[in-house]
Amino acid sequence: MTILANILVVFFIAAGLLFLVVAAIGVLRLPDLYTRAHAASKSSTLGVMCILLGVFFHFWLKEDHFNPTILLGVLFLFITGPVGAHIMSRSSYIAGVKPWSGTMRDELKPEIERMKKEQNIE
């Protein structure tokens, strides 16, 4: 049982670490804000969820200590991670952060211009 639990825990944590490292590399290496935000939100959320599940199982299975806060945390991260990244990216775009020169399509631009026109803002 302990070994099984250990394997489960190690598996989750290892997976989480992998995602996290990928996210970190992504944030470090990717060329512009939007791509970096992408790496940060998706990959790291997944990573942290995995690791937290690992931690949760560790405490539940090994220490016999059911900890609902971790689950709540997982849920919370699940909700907020992507939302946060979305808001961040959108604000940055509105604030005028230029996308990478290699960006293929920019769908927000015409939308923003339309809104500006509606509200009579230069």
């Binding site: 996290l20 940060a40 942290v48 690791i51 937290l52 991260l77 946060g84 961040m88």
Partner: peptide
Amino acid sequence: SDRVVALDTIGVALIC
């Protein structure tokens, strides 16, 4: 914005 993204991710890493 980059910094904030980084900070956000740091927060996540800290959780781990």
